[in-house]
Design a protein around this nucleic acid. Structure first.
Lengths: 223, 223
DNA sequence: TGTACATCAGTGAACGCGCGTTCACTGATGTAC
DNA sequence: TGTACATCAGTGAACGCGCGTTCACTGATGTAC
């Protein structure tokens, strides 16, 4: 493909027309590589993902990747970081949508967790199953902390409605919900184990959180 | 190493002295390979595991593996199957140790889940993170179903103590506990994410299940 | 407006590597006589 | 007890493959004049 390689690149996923972004040959190769990586991670798991294939999917030689990333790991880390960013935004939006009710905010963040896992499966896997350490870069640590912070804030608000004597630490409440949500996603929201889920994951999470909140005395026992 | 390769093998992990098991050159290569695979899966994750390295660790040529397994996947599947067997045994033992109290049995199975993940990390990863389908072989499906059955039985016993009107299906209760346990293991019982867990995983699971059971009305609200 | 130049994103060939798998073989084992 | 033989667990060499990474290069781009 010697002379006109531009149309080919456009076909293979460059988000805009050729040279739309000024100063770049490809358009925006950096983001195109992240997007390709996310698709591959979603489809083949973090271990099935290869730098070479991501480059190919972006219409580019593997060597070109090194103009934008230090290597394979660095590309995965960027995908995870973008995921944490979206995740934190989503959680924040859910939190705000439930205000001023602490209970509504908390339930909304729980639902947002599952919604994120569903809508951004590539990001989710890159974040939680790729083995990337959250402390890999300060940038990644910061954005991950922001996501965790939203859930902890929601749990903190909620705690104020519990008599101080029987109130668990807010961090513990958020850890419980995070664990329950993650478990539901891993075990029941993926088709991978080959088993069919006995219930829709959304229902499972909704009822699980409901029973848990009843246990905290935040929902009347007979509803 | 032409003439005496026997001592070498003993060093590299043959469980007993040379030729202790009659009829085998190695001793018991099949199990030695499974053990090596479990070690590697524990240390490097399911994707870092290679057939060649498992063979090497067992003191044997990669080609020898094919005398006992169909290939790499088959070896992982056997490791997972052995894990499900141990897991089911442990859960059953925990269930029985709590009898005749349905509540004690249920709580014991929850604790057994975490204990298994701690004591058999290689098996745990092979079972839940290797991507092996549970329906890969009838044998694997059966032993996995046995493990799931114990938890569902414990949940079923418990359900009988809840007024029928507000009683969730036992399968849902067991799914909640399975998800919570799995989430705690994945997020807080592994060092991998680089974060330090805010609470000991055992406490997290114990309190989480406690609050949940209170929500089901099975524990008085003020304890 | 047109020309000369510096930049640097992407090329393409090459590398060494370890992987999973195959194959004809070898030699220690247990068995039959 | 000793010898001849069949079995089959493990060998070692070879395969084709795709991987991540490197390197000198090229040629389209934006800029200075």
């Amino acid at each position: 493909m010697p002379p006109p390689n531009c149309p080919i690149r456009r076909l293979q996923g460059a988000p805009t027309a050729c040279m739309s972004k000024r100063g770049y040959h490809h358009g925006n190769l950096r983001q195109a590589l992240v997007d390709a990586a996310l698709d591959l991670i979603r489809d083949k798991g973090p271990t099935g993902f290869t730098l070479s294939e991501a480059a190919k999917q972006a219409g580019v030689t593997p060597a070109a990747v090194y103009r934008h990333f230090e290597g394979r790991e660095d590309l995965i880390a960027e995908a995870a970081a973008q995921g944490y960013g979206i995740f934190a935004d989503l959680m924040e939006y859910a939190y705000n949508s439930g205000q001023p009710s602490a209970l509504a905010s908390f339930e909304a963040t729980g639902r947002a967790y599952l919604a994120f896992a569903r809508r951004y499966p590539g990001h989710y896997v890159a974040m939680f199953e790729s083995g990337i350490s959250i402390n890999r870069t300060p940038d990644l640590a910061r954005v991950a902390q922001r996501a965790r912070g939203v859930l902890e804030k929601a749990a903190g608000d909620l705690s104020k409605h519990i008599p101080a004597a029987k109130r668990p630490p807010p961090q513990m409440v958020s850890a419980h919900i995070w664990a329950l949500s993650h478990g539901v996603v891993e075990l029941f929201a993926r088709a991978s184990p080959g088993t069919t889920s006995p219930f829709p994951p959304e229902d499972l999470l909704e009822t699980g959180i409901g029973i848990y909140l009843r246990g905290l005395g935040l929902i009347p026992p007979d509803i």
